[in-house]
Amino acid sequence: MPELPDVEGFRRVARQATNHQVRDVRVHDEQVLRGISSDSFQRAVRRRYFAEPQRHGKWLLMPTTGAANAAAALPVVLLHFGMTGSLQWCPHDAELHQHDRVVFDFATGELRYRDMRKLTGIHLAREQEEVDDLLAELGPDAQQIEAAEFGKRLTRTRRRLKPALMDQSVLAGLGNLSADEILWRARIPPHRSTTELTADELDQLHREMRTMLRESVRAGRIPDGASWLTGHRDEPDRRCPRCSTALRRARVGGRSTLWCPTCQPG
């Protein structure tokens, strides 16, 4: 499932369209459009220019303008990638993938929204209020939040720590892989109550989150290298990359969760 680092990678893909005019929009599957018909979407975006794309949590925002190098404006194309979505930059002669749902055509190439399961999709906001409404329930972006605000938002209700980290209204951008990785790095078990966290533990969580996200954003995904917990999720004999203890797996907050009982006791 695309998380903050993946969507930041998609933002870099989308930047290839910045200041380029949309020559055409081809909607191959109208089901991924939310609240707008294929014809209306095509009319609204065709011949517009894409400005610098922005990201908030797992959402990608692509403002449009009437001319190249103009300030970001409306309408805004908002993309959410659900479980299986991605954004691809392709040459014009690249074969259409079976899951390419919407294709934006430019003189220099094509930007393709690809999604197998179509759980979320693409929105078009013609007014700023529509953008605000779509993002209204999101908390601060996980890559931008400061330590003090992080601690306040995480501990304001009594709940288990991993579900709190993944709650997009608390913090926007973290998913299953990134939450497990942060907790493993911070040496805190996923089932701890948020009300039990000390100030030092909250600071440690924030530092590890910032470090993990910085490295993951650079890669455009949660890395699966040998020194990362993520790199051992699918091994038949899952071992902690730090201490070699057998990793435990269980459902926490309804999600498959991996942790080390030695490094993350309690």
Rank of each mutant, 00 (worst) to 15 (best):
T230Y: 10
L183I: 05
L135I: 01
R112S: 07
F104C: 08
T155E: 13
I122N: 03
W89L: 10
R239D: 10
H99V: 03
G225C: 01
R239F: 03
T157Q: 15
S256C: 09
E149R: 12
R160T: 13
G254C: 12
H206Q: 12
V102R: 03
L213F: 08
P53M: 07
V252Y: 09
L229N: 02
C90V: 14
R238L: 07
E127F: 01
E196W: 11
R12C: 05
S193V: 00
C243V: 13
P223M: 07
C243H: 11
V76A: 02
T18M: 04
M116N: 07
S216Y: 10
A142E: 09
N19A: 11
Y49V: 07
P75S: 10
R153E: 08
E127W: 00
L165C: 06
L78D: 05
R255Y: 13
A148C: 00
E137K: 01
L161K: 04
P261G: 08
F150S: 07
R47V: 00
F150H: 06
L33T: 05
L124C: 03
D224F: 01
S86T: 04
L74C: 07
P2Y: 02
G173D: 11
R214D: 15
W184S: 04
D100Y: 05
L171T: 07
H20E: 12
W259Q: 07
G231T: 01
T155Q: 06
Q143T: 15
D115W: 05
A125K: 04
A179T: 04
D24I: 00
G225N: 03
M116E: 09
E146P: 00
Q204R: 15
A70S: 10
P140E: 06
T262L: 15
E8A: 02
P53S: 08
H191E: 14
D180G: 05
I36K: 04
L202Q: 01
Q54I: 06
R34C: 13
L33Q: 07
W228N: 05
R251S: 15
F106A: 07
R26P: 00
D100P: 07
R192M: 12
L87R: 06
